[in-house]
Nucleic acid binder design. Structure first.
Lengths: 245, 245
DNA sequence: CGACTTTTTGACCTAATTCAACTAATGTGG
DNA sequence: CCACATTAGTTGAATTAGGTCAAAAAGTCG
Protein backbone atom coordinates (compact mmCIF):
# COMPACT_ATOMS: atom_id res chain seq x y z
CA UNK A 1 0.00 0.00 0.00
CA UNK A 2 1.21 3.43 -0.91
CA UNK A 3 0.07 6.79 -2.23
CA UNK A 4 1.57 9.90 -3.83
CA UNK A 5 2.31 11.52 -0.49
CA UNK A 6 4.25 8.53 0.77
CA UNK A 7 6.03 8.13 -2.55
CA UNK A 8 7.07 11.75 -2.56
CA UNK A 9 8.62 11.72 0.89
CA UNK A 10 10.15 8.37 0.11
CA UNK A 11 12.07 10.01 -2.73
CA UNK A 12 13.81 12.27 -0.23
CA UNK A 13 14.46 9.90 2.66
CA UNK A 14 14.15 6.17 2.98
CA UNK A 15 11.07 5.75 5.16
CA UNK A 16 10.40 2.95 7.62
CA UNK A 17 7.23 0.82 7.29
CA UNK A 18 6.11 2.59 10.45
CA UNK A 19 6.52 6.03 8.87
CA UNK A 20 4.55 4.93 5.83
CA UNK A 21 1.74 3.45 7.84
CA UNK A 22 1.44 6.68 9.82
CA UNK A 23 1.36 8.83 6.66
CA UNK A 24 -1.22 6.56 5.06
CA UNK A 25 -3.40 6.72 8.13
CA UNK A 26 -3.45 10.50 7.88
CA UNK A 27 -4.04 10.36 4.15
CA UNK A 28 -7.19 8.29 4.40
CA UNK A 29 -8.68 10.97 6.61
CA UNK A 30 -8.21 13.54 3.84
CA UNK A 31 -11.19 15.74 3.06
CA UNK A 32 -12.71 16.22 -0.36
CA UNK A 33 -12.64 19.76 -1.77
CA UNK A 34 -14.16 20.84 -5.06
CA UNK A 35 -12.36 22.55 -7.94
CA UNK A 36 -11.81 26.32 -8.10
CA UNK A 37 -11.94 27.11 -4.44
CA UNK A 38 -9.34 28.51 -2.10
CA UNK A 39 -7.80 26.15 0.44
CA UNK A 40 -5.99 29.08 2.03
CA UNK A 41 -6.47 32.75 1.32
CA UNK A 42 -3.98 35.60 1.56
CA UNK A 43 -4.26 37.08 5.06
CA UNK A 44 -5.47 33.82 6.62
CA UNK A 45 -3.74 32.39 9.64
CA UNK A 46 -4.11 28.69 8.87
CA UNK A 47 -4.03 26.46 11.90
CA UNK A 48 -3.34 23.20 10.14
CA UNK A 49 -0.70 22.22 7.64
CA UNK A 50 -2.40 20.92 4.49
CA UNK A 51 -1.22 18.27 2.06
CA UNK A 52 -2.68 17.57 -1.34
CA UNK A 53 -3.38 13.83 -1.46
CA UNK A 54 -5.18 13.89 -4.74
CA UNK A 55 -5.83 16.57 -7.38
CA UNK A 56 -4.15 19.80 -8.47
CA UNK A 57 -3.81 23.16 -6.79
CA UNK A 58 -1.82 26.33 -7.25
CA UNK A 59 -0.04 28.89 -5.14
CA UNK A 60 -0.91 32.39 -6.35
CA UNK A 61 -1.20 36.04 -5.52
CA UNK A 62 -3.39 38.82 -6.89
CA UNK A 63 -1.71 42.16 -7.57
CA UNK A 64 -3.24 45.53 -6.84
CA UNK A 65 -3.96 46.08 -10.53
CA UNK A 66 -6.03 42.92 -10.68
CA UNK A 67 -3.49 40.62 -12.26
CA UNK A 68 -2.66 37.17 -10.96
CA UNK A 69 0.72 35.49 -10.66
CA UNK A 70 0.91 31.76 -10.05
CA UNK A 71 4.06 30.71 -8.13
CA UNK A 72 3.72 26.97 -8.00
CA UNK A 73 1.56 24.05 -8.94
CA UNK A 74 0.78 21.64 -6.17
CA UNK A 75 0.41 18.03 -7.18
CA UNK A 76 -0.41 14.99 -5.04
CA UNK A 77 2.05 14.74 -2.17
CA UNK A 78 2.76 18.48 -1.96
CA UNK A 79 2.46 20.58 1.17
CA UNK A 80 0.46 23.79 1.01
CA UNK A 81 1.96 25.78 3.82
CA UNK A 82 4.73 23.96 5.59
CA UNK A 83 6.61 27.21 5.96
CA UNK A 84 4.09 29.46 7.63
CA UNK A 85 4.28 27.91 11.06
CA UNK A 86 5.81 31.19 12.23
CA UNK A 87 4.20 33.75 9.96
CA UNK A 88 1.05 35.10 11.40
CA UNK A 89 -0.48 35.67 8.01
CA UNK A 90 -0.31 33.94 4.63
CA UNK A 91 1.12 36.33 2.05
CA UNK A 92 -0.43 34.41 -0.82
CA UNK A 93 -3.35 32.12 -1.53
CA UNK A 94 -3.72 28.49 -2.51
CA UNK A 95 -6.54 27.47 -4.80
CA UNK A 96 -7.65 24.15 -6.22
CA UNK A 97 -7.52 23.55 -9.96
CA UNK A 98 -9.45 20.30 -9.82
CA UNK A 99 -11.38 18.44 -7.13
CA UNK A 100 -8.83 17.57 -4.44
CA UNK A 101 -8.47 15.39 -1.42
CA UNK A 102 -6.62 17.32 1.27
CA UNK A 103 -5.05 15.94 4.43
CA UNK A 104 -4.78 18.03 7.57
CA UNK A 105 -1.88 18.02 10.00
CA UNK A 106 -2.51 19.70 13.31
CA UNK A 107 0.45 21.37 15.00
CA UNK A 108 0.37 18.49 17.50
CA UNK A 109 0.77 15.99 14.69
CA UNK A 110 3.76 17.86 13.33
CA UNK A 111 5.37 17.74 16.75
CA UNK A 112 4.60 14.03 17.03
CA UNK A 113 6.12 13.50 13.62
CA UNK A 114 9.36 15.29 14.44
CA UNK A 115 9.64 13.27 17.64
CA UNK A 116 8.87 9.87 16.22
CA UNK A 117 10.90 9.98 13.02
CA UNK A 118 14.10 11.87 12.20
CA UNK A 119 13.95 10.72 8.59
CA UNK A 120 10.41 12.04 8.16
CA UNK A 121 11.51 15.30 9.71
CA UNK A 122 14.36 15.56 7.24
CA UNK A 123 11.99 14.70 4.40
CA UNK A 124 9.69 17.57 5.37
CA UNK A 125 12.62 19.94 5.63
CA UNK A 126 13.71 18.79 2.18
CA UNK A 127 10.25 19.57 0.81
CA UNK A 128 10.54 23.19 1.79
CA UNK A 129 14.08 23.45 0.41
CA UNK A 130 12.97 21.98 -2.88
CA UNK A 131 10.02 24.39 -3.00
CA UNK A 132 12.55 27.22 -2.71
CA UNK A 133 14.81 25.77 -5.38
CA UNK A 134 11.81 25.34 -7.67
CA UNK A 135 10.85 28.96 -7.19
CA UNK A 136 14.37 30.01 -8.17
CA UNK A 137 14.16 27.89 -11.27
CA UNK A 138 10.86 29.55 -12.17
CA UNK A 139 12.56 32.90 -11.88
CA UNK A 140 15.21 31.73 -14.33
CA UNK A 141 12.39 30.55 -16.54
CA UNK A 142 10.60 33.91 -16.59
CA UNK A 143 13.76 35.93 -16.78
CA UNK A 144 15.75 34.09 -19.40
CA UNK A 145 13.59 31.99 -21.69
CA UNK A 146 11.30 32.71 -24.63
CA UNK A 147 7.62 31.78 -24.47
CA UNK A 148 7.80 28.31 -26.06
CA UNK A 149 10.92 27.34 -24.11
CA UNK A 150 9.40 28.67 -20.93
CA UNK A 151 6.23 26.63 -21.34
CA UNK A 152 8.19 23.53 -22.27
CA UNK A 153 10.34 23.90 -19.20
CA UNK A 154 7.27 24.01 -16.98
CA UNK A 155 5.92 20.89 -18.65
CA UNK A 156 9.22 19.10 -18.10
CA UNK A 157 9.17 20.00 -14.43
CA UNK A 158 5.61 18.80 -14.00
CA UNK A 159 6.40 15.59 -15.81
CA UNK A 160 9.39 14.97 -13.56
CA UNK A 161 7.35 15.60 -10.42
CA UNK A 162 4.39 13.54 -11.56
CA UNK A 163 6.79 10.75 -12.46
CA UNK A 164 8.32 10.93 -8.99
CA UNK A 165 4.95 10.23 -7.37
CA UNK A 166 3.95 7.61 -9.90
CA UNK A 167 1.27 9.56 -11.74
CA UNK A 168 2.53 9.46 -15.29
CA UNK A 169 1.54 7.10 -18.05
CA UNK A 170 4.58 7.04 -20.28
CA UNK A 171 5.02 10.67 -21.35
CA UNK A 172 1.44 11.53 -20.56
CA UNK A 173 -0.30 12.77 -17.42
CA UNK A 174 -3.35 14.58 -16.18
CA UNK A 175 -2.95 18.39 -16.24
CA UNK A 176 -6.13 20.36 -15.61
CA UNK A 177 -4.83 23.79 -16.59
CA UNK A 178 -6.56 26.37 -18.74
CA UNK A 179 -4.50 28.59 -21.01
CA UNK A 180 -5.49 31.45 -18.77
CA UNK A 181 -3.78 29.77 -15.83
CA UNK A 182 -0.75 29.02 -17.94
CA UNK A 183 -0.52 32.66 -18.95
CA UNK A 184 -0.69 33.82 -15.33
CA UNK A 185 2.09 31.39 -14.55
CA UNK A 186 4.36 32.34 -17.39
CA UNK A 187 3.93 36.09 -17.42
CA UNK A 188 2.53 35.89 -20.96
CA UNK A 189 -0.80 36.85 -22.53
CA UNK A 190 -3.37 34.13 -23.10
CA UNK A 191 -3.16 34.67 -26.83
CA UNK A 192 0.58 34.24 -26.86
CA UNK A 193 0.34 31.09 -24.75
CA UNK A 194 -2.15 29.75 -27.25
CA UNK A 195 0.16 30.47 -30.18
CA UNK A 196 3.16 29.02 -28.38
CA UNK A 197 1.24 25.84 -27.56
CA UNK A 198 0.28 25.56 -31.20
CA UNK A 199 3.93 25.93 -32.17
CA UNK A 200 4.98 23.21 -29.72
CA UNK A 201 2.17 20.95 -30.86
CA UNK A 202 3.06 21.40 -34.53
CA UNK A 203 6.72 20.75 -33.76
CA UNK A 204 5.58 17.43 -32.26
CA UNK A 205 7.04 18.33 -28.87
CA UNK A 206 3.97 18.34 -26.67
CA UNK A 207 0.17 18.39 -26.85
CA UNK A 208 -2.17 19.74 -24.17
CA UNK A 209 -5.80 18.73 -24.62
CA UNK A 210 -8.72 17.61 -22.45
CA UNK A 211 -6.89 18.37 -19.20
CA UNK A 212 -4.19 15.97 -20.25
CA UNK A 213 -0.69 16.49 -21.57
CA UNK A 214 1.03 14.19 -24.01
CA UNK A 215 4.78 14.33 -24.50
CA UNK A 216 5.71 12.02 -27.37
CA UNK A 217 9.39 12.00 -26.44
CA UNK A 218 10.31 13.32 -23.01
CA UNK A 219 14.04 13.38 -23.77
CA UNK A 220 13.45 15.55 -26.82
CA UNK A 221 11.32 18.02 -24.87
CA UNK A 222 13.88 18.20 -22.05
CA UNK A 223 16.53 18.88 -24.60
CA UNK A 224 14.45 21.61 -26.23
CA UNK A 225 13.69 23.24 -22.86
CA UNK A 226 17.25 22.83 -21.57
CA UNK A 227 15.68 21.13 -18.58
CA UNK A 228 17.98 19.94 -15.82
CA UNK A 229 16.07 18.22 -13.02
CA UNK A 230 18.78 18.54 -10.41
CA UNK A 231 17.00 21.42 -8.68
CA UNK A 232 14.24 19.01 -7.67
CA UNK A 233 16.85 17.16 -5.57
CA UNK A 234 15.26 13.75 -6.05
CA UNK A 235 17.46 11.26 -4.35
CA UNK A 236 17.19 8.20 -6.50
CA UNK A 237 17.68 8.48 -10.26
CA UNK A 238 14.74 9.28 -12.53
CA UNK A 239 13.06 5.99 -13.33
CA UNK A 240 14.07 4.21 -10.13
CA UNK A 241 11.02 2.08 -9.51
CA UNK A 242 11.38 1.16 -5.87
CA UNK A 243 8.91 -1.14 -4.24
CA UNK A 244 6.75 0.40 -1.58
CA UNK A 245 6.07 -2.73 0.48
CA UNK B 1 26.81 48.73 20.14
CA UNK B 2 25.04 47.21 17.20
CA UNK B 3 25.48 46.28 13.55
CA UNK B 4 23.33 45.47 10.53
CA UNK B 5 23.19 41.77 11.39
CA UNK B 6 21.92 42.44 14.89
CA UNK B 7 19.51 45.08 13.66
CA UNK B 8 18.08 42.74 11.07
CA UNK B 9 17.35 39.89 13.46
CA UNK B 10 16.06 42.40 15.95
CA UNK B 11 13.41 43.40 13.45
CA UNK B 12 12.01 39.89 13.54
CA UNK B 13 12.29 39.01 17.22
CA UNK B 14 13.08 41.13 20.24
CA UNK B 15 16.59 39.98 21.16
CA UNK B 16 18.09 39.85 24.62
CA UNK B 17 21.32 41.77 25.38
CA UNK B 18 22.91 38.34 25.59
CA UNK B 19 21.78 37.39 22.09
CA UNK B 20 23.14 40.65 20.74
CA UNK B 21 26.47 40.31 22.42
CA UNK B 22 26.85 36.82 21.00
CA UNK B 23 25.98 37.94 17.47
CA UNK B 24 28.36 40.87 17.71
CA UNK B 25 31.14 38.62 18.90
CA UNK B 26 30.74 36.48 15.79
CA UNK B 27 30.48 39.54 13.58
CA UNK B 28 33.83 40.95 14.64
CA UNK B 29 35.48 37.73 13.52
CA UNK B 30 34.13 38.27 9.99
CA UNK B 31 36.59 37.83 7.15
CA UNK B 32 37.25 40.36 4.43
CA UNK B 33 36.47 39.27 0.86
CA UNK B 34 37.10 41.34 -2.26
CA UNK B 35 34.52 42.34 -4.86
CA UNK B 36 33.52 40.07 -7.76
CA UNK B 37 34.35 36.74 -6.27
CA UNK B 38 32.21 33.77 -5.40
CA UNK B 39 31.54 33.08 -1.74
CA UNK B 40 29.83 29.84 -2.67
CA UNK B 41 29.71 28.19 -6.05
CA UNK B 42 27.03 25.96 -7.57
CA UNK B 43 27.90 22.36 -6.75
CA UNK B 44 29.80 23.26 -3.56
CA UNK B 45 28.96 21.60 -0.29
CA UNK B 46 29.56 24.54 2.05
CA UNK B 47 30.41 23.55 5.59
CA UNK B 48 29.72 26.88 7.24
CA UNK B 49 26.71 29.15 7.13
CA UNK B 50 27.81 32.59 5.94
CA UNK B 51 26.41 35.99 6.84
CA UNK B 52 27.16 39.24 5.06
CA UNK B 53 28.23 41.70 7.74
CA UNK B 54 29.25 44.42 5.34
CA UNK B 55 28.99 44.90 1.57
CA UNK B 56 26.75 43.58 -1.19
CA UNK B 57 26.40 40.16 -2.73
CA UNK B 58 24.02 38.33 -5.02
CA UNK B 59 22.48 34.91 -5.36
CA UNK B 60 22.66 33.80 -8.99
CA UNK B 61 22.70 30.92 -11.42
CA UNK B 62 24.21 30.52 -14.87
CA UNK B 63 22.08 28.79 -17.50
CA UNK B 64 23.36 26.30 -20.02
CA UNK B 65 23.16 28.90 -22.77
CA UNK B 66 25.49 31.21 -20.89
CA UNK B 67 22.92 33.58 -19.45
CA UNK B 68 22.78 34.62 -15.82
CA UNK B 69 19.77 35.06 -13.57
CA UNK B 70 20.15 36.87 -10.27
CA UNK B 71 17.64 35.70 -7.61
CA UNK B 72 18.42 37.94 -4.71
CA UNK B 73 20.63 40.71 -3.48
CA UNK B 74 22.28 40.11 -0.15
CA UNK B 75 22.81 43.18 1.98
CA UNK B 76 24.43 43.47 5.41
CA UNK B 77 22.71 41.12 7.84
CA UNK B 78 21.66 38.58 5.22
CA UNK B 79 22.38 34.87 5.35
CA UNK B 80 23.94 33.22 2.31
CA UNK B 81 22.89 29.64 2.77
CA UNK B 82 20.80 29.09 5.84
CA UNK B 83 18.73 26.56 3.96
CA UNK B 84 21.29 24.15 2.63
CA UNK B 85 22.03 22.40 5.89
CA UNK B 86 20.46 19.31 4.36
CA UNK B 87 21.21 19.69 0.68
CA UNK B 88 24.44 18.05 -0.27
CA UNK B 89 25.08 20.51 -3.06
CA UNK B 90 24.35 24.19 -3.65
CA UNK B 91 22.10 24.58 -6.67
CA UNK B 92 23.20 28.18 -7.23
CA UNK B 93 26.12 30.47 -6.53
CA UNK B 94 26.68 33.51 -4.36
CA UNK B 95 29.03 36.23 -5.55
CA UNK B 96 30.16 39.50 -4.05
CA UNK B 97 29.25 42.78 -5.74
CA UNK B 98 31.53 44.89 -3.56
CA UNK B 99 34.20 44.14 -0.99
CA UNK B 100 32.45 42.31 1.85
CA UNK B 101 33.00 41.25 5.40
CA UNK B 102 31.58 37.76 5.90
CA UNK B 103 30.91 36.00 9.19
CA UNK B 104 31.11 32.22 9.47
CA UNK B 105 28.84 30.04 11.54
CA UNK B 106 29.98 26.48 12.02
CA UNK B 107 27.29 23.81 12.39
CA UNK B 108 28.24 23.64 16.06
CA UNK B 109 27.53 27.33 16.47
CA UNK B 110 24.11 26.95 14.88
CA UNK B 111 23.33 24.16 17.33
CA UNK B 112 24.56 26.31 20.21
CA UNK B 113 22.36 29.13 18.98
CA UNK B 114 19.21 27.03 18.80
CA UNK B 115 19.88 25.76 22.30
CA UNK B 116 20.70 29.05 23.94
CA UNK B 117 18.02 31.26 22.43
CA UNK B 118 14.52 30.41 21.19
CA UNK B 119 14.01 33.95 19.95
CA UNK B 120 17.19 33.84 17.87
CA UNK B 121 16.09 30.49 16.49
CA UNK B 122 12.76 31.96 15.49
CA UNK B 123 14.53 34.96 13.95
CA UNK B 124 16.64 32.67 11.77
CA UNK B 125 13.61 30.69 10.76
CA UNK B 126 11.91 33.97 9.85
CA UNK B 127 14.88 34.92 7.68
CA UNK B 128 14.41 31.91 5.50
CA UNK B 129 10.64 32.43 5.29
CA UNK B 130 11.15 36.03 4.24
CA UNK B 131 13.70 34.94 1.63
CA UNK B 132 11.00 32.70 0.18
CA UNK B 133 8.38 35.43 0.25
CA UNK B 134 10.81 37.80 -1.45
CA UNK B 135 11.47 35.29 -4.18
CA UNK B 136 7.72 35.02 -4.78
CA UNK B 137 7.47 38.77 -5.00
CA UNK B 138 10.29 38.80 -7.56
CA UNK B 139 8.33 36.31 -9.62
CA UNK B 140 5.34 38.66 -9.56
CA UNK B 141 7.71 41.42 -10.57
CA UNK B 142 9.06 39.56 -13.60
CA UNK B 143 5.73 38.12 -14.58
CA UNK B 144 3.43 41.09 -14.23
CA UNK B 145 5.24 44.41 -14.44
CA UNK B 146 6.73 46.51 -17.25
CA UNK B 147 10.42 47.36 -17.25
CA UNK B 148 10.28 50.72 -15.43
CA UNK B 149 7.81 49.47 -12.83
CA UNK B 150 9.84 46.33 -12.35
CA UNK B 151 13.06 48.23 -11.73
CA UNK B 152 11.30 50.68 -9.41
CA UNK B 153 9.86 47.82 -7.41
CA UNK B 154 13.32 46.36 -6.89
CA UNK B 155 14.60 49.74 -5.75
CA UNK B 156 11.73 50.06 -3.29
CA UNK B 157 12.50 46.67 -1.85
CA UNK B 158 16.18 47.44 -1.47
CA UNK B 159 15.36 50.75 0.15
CA UNK B 160 13.05 49.06 2.62
CA UNK B 161 15.64 46.45 3.50
CA UNK B 162 18.49 48.93 3.78
CA UNK B 163 16.29 51.11 5.96
CA UNK B 164 15.54 48.12 8.20
CA UNK B 165 19.24 47.65 8.93
CA UNK B 166 19.95 51.35 9.27
CA UNK B 167 21.92 51.86 6.08
CA UNK B 168 19.92 54.56 4.33
CA UNK B 169 20.52 58.28 4.33
CA UNK B 170 17.09 59.71 3.77
CA UNK B 171 16.04 58.27 0.39
CA UNK B 172 19.59 57.50 -0.61
CA UNK B 173 21.82 54.47 -0.10
CA UNK B 174 24.85 52.72 -1.49
CA UNK B 175 24.01 50.38 -4.38
CA UNK B 176 27.01 49.01 -6.27
CA UNK B 177 25.15 47.50 -9.23
CA UNK B 178 26.05 47.78 -12.88
CA UNK B 179 23.31 47.96 -15.47
CA UNK B 180 24.42 44.54 -16.62
CA UNK B 181 23.63 43.11 -13.20
CA UNK B 182 20.30 44.90 -13.17
CA UNK B 183 19.46 43.40 -16.54
CA UNK B 184 20.30 39.88 -15.34
CA UNK B 185 18.04 40.48 -12.37
CA UNK B 186 15.11 41.86 -14.27
CA UNK B 187 15.10 39.60 -17.29
CA UNK B 188 15.68 42.62 -19.53
CA UNK B 189 18.42 43.60 -21.96
CA UNK B 190 21.10 46.02 -20.78
CA UNK B 191 19.99 48.57 -23.34
CA UNK B 192 16.43 48.47 -22.15
CA UNK B 193 17.49 48.79 -18.53
CA UNK B 194 19.50 51.83 -19.53
CA UNK B 195 16.54 53.42 -21.26
CA UNK B 196 14.19 52.60 -18.39
CA UNK B 197 16.60 54.12 -15.88
CA UNK B 198 16.74 57.23 -18.02
CA UNK B 199 12.95 57.37 -18.04
CA UNK B 200 12.80 57.01 -14.25
CA UNK B 201 15.52 59.62 -13.80
CA UNK B 202 13.79 62.11 -16.10
CA UNK B 203 10.49 61.52 -14.31
CA UNK B 204 12.31 62.52 -11.12
CA UNK B 205 11.55 59.16 -9.51
CA UNK B 206 15.01 57.77 -8.92
CA UNK B 207 18.64 58.29 -9.91
CA UNK B 208 21.35 55.61 -9.92
CA UNK B 209 24.87 56.98 -10.22
CA UNK B 210 28.31 56.31 -8.77
CA UNK B 211 27.19 53.13 -7.02
CA UNK B 212 24.61 55.14 -5.15
CA UNK B 213 20.86 55.43 -5.53
CA UNK B 214 18.91 58.60 -4.79
CA UNK B 215 15.15 58.46 -4.34
CA UNK B 216 13.86 62.04 -4.02
CA UNK B 217 10.52 60.93 -2.62
CA UNK B 218 10.24 57.35 -1.43
CA UNK B 219 6.46 57.50 -1.08
CA UNK B 220 6.10 58.60 -4.70
CA UNK B 221 8.32 55.79 -5.95
CA UNK B 222 6.44 53.20 -3.85
CA UNK B 223 3.23 54.48 -5.29
CA UNK B 224 4.58 54.28 -8.83
CA UNK B 225 5.87 50.73 -8.29
CA UNK B 226 2.76 49.62 -6.40
CA UNK B 227 5.14 48.48 -3.70
CA UNK B 228 3.66 46.83 -0.62
CA UNK B 229 6.33 45.93 1.91
CA UNK B 230 4.25 43.41 3.82
CA UNK B 231 6.03 40.47 2.19
CA UNK B 232 9.21 41.47 4.05
CA UNK B 233 7.37 40.70 7.30
CA UNK B 234 9.17 43.35 9.32
CA UNK B 235 7.68 43.30 12.75
CA UNK B 236 7.82 46.91 13.81
CA UNK B 237 6.51 49.58 11.48
CA UNK B 238 8.72 51.17 8.86
CA UNK B 239 10.53 54.04 10.53
CA UNK B 240 10.47 52.52 14.01
CA UNK B 241 13.80 53.73 15.38
CA UNK B 242 14.36 51.41 18.32
CA UNK B 243 17.36 51.80 20.54
CA UNK B 244 19.89 49.00 20.36
CA UNK B 245 21.35 49.46 23.85
C1' DC C 1 -30.92 23.56 -26.31
C1' DG C 2 -29.03 27.99 -24.90
C1' DA C 3 -25.51 30.32 -21.68
C1' DC C 4 -20.96 30.34 -20.67
C1' DT C 5 -16.20 29.45 -20.72
C1' DT C 6 -12.21 28.18 -23.23
C1' DT C 7 -9.62 27.93 -27.43
C1' DT C 8 -8.28 29.65 -31.79
C1' DT C 9 -7.29 32.98 -35.39
C1' DG C 10 -6.48 37.56 -37.73
C1' DA C 11 -4.97 42.28 -37.80
C1' DC C 12 -2.64 45.68 -35.66
C1' DC C 13 0.28 47.77 -32.15
C1' DT C 14 4.07 48.34 -28.66
C1' DA C 15 7.50 46.98 -25.48
C1' DA C 16 11.63 45.14 -25.59
C1' DT C 17 15.70 43.18 -28.26
C1' DT C 18 19.58 43.35 -31.27
C1' DC C 19 23.26 45.45 -33.54
C1' DA C 20 26.30 48.96 -33.78
C1' DA C 21 28.58 52.92 -32.76
C1' DC C 22 30.13 56.28 -29.62
C1' DT C 23 31.07 58.51 -25.07
C1' DA C 24 32.23 58.47 -20.42
C1' DA C 25 34.56 56.44 -16.69
C1' DT C 26 38.07 53.52 -14.50
C1' DG C 27 42.26 51.33 -14.33
C1' DT C 28 47.30 50.02 -15.57
C1' DG C 29 51.92 50.22 -16.54
C1' DG C 30 55.79 52.97 -18.18
C1' DC D 1 51.17 61.84 -14.92
C1' DC D 2 49.99 60.45 -19.36
C1' DA D 3 48.93 57.01 -23.14
C1' DC D 4 46.43 53.08 -23.65
C1' DA D 5 43.25 49.46 -22.62
C1' DT D 6 39.05 48.06 -20.66
C1' DT D 7 34.69 48.32 -18.75
C1' DA D 8 30.39 50.77 -18.12
C1' DG D 9 26.98 53.77 -19.80
C1' DT D 10 24.36 56.08 -23.67
C1' DT D 11 22.07 56.67 -28.04
C1' DG D 12 20.01 55.56 -32.73
C1' DA D 13 17.95 52.53 -36.12
C1' DA D 14 15.98 48.33 -37.44
C1' DT D 15 13.74 44.17 -35.96
C1' DT D 16 10.99 40.96 -33.32
C1' DA D 17 8.66 38.87 -29.56
C1' DG D 18 4.87 39.45 -27.36
C1' DG D 19 0.52 42.26 -26.27
C1' DT D 20 -4.15 44.05 -27.38
C1' DC D 21 -8.52 44.04 -29.51
C1' DA D 22 -12.01 41.67 -31.61
C1' DA D 23 -14.53 38.02 -33.27
C1' DA D 24 -15.27 33.24 -34.52
C1' DA D 25 -15.12 28.33 -33.38
C1' DA D 26 -15.30 24.74 -30.15
C1' DG D 27 -16.26 22.76 -25.72
C1' DT D 28 -18.85 22.38 -21.29
C1' DC D 29 -22.71 22.29 -18.49
C1' DG D 30 -27.21 23.02 -16.28
Amino acid sequence: MSNAFVRKLDRFEQLTPDDRAWLLEISVRAKQVSADCDLIREGDNPENVLVIIDGFAMRYKLTSNGRRQIFAYLIPGDFCDLHVALLKKMDHSIGTLSPCRVAHFTPAMIVELTERSPSLTRALWMCSLVDGATLREWLVNLGQRSAPHRISHLFCELHERMLAVGLTDDGSFELPLTQSELSDTMGLSIVHVNRSLKELREAGLVTLRNERIIIPDVAVLKDYAEFDASYLHLKWPLQGARNSS
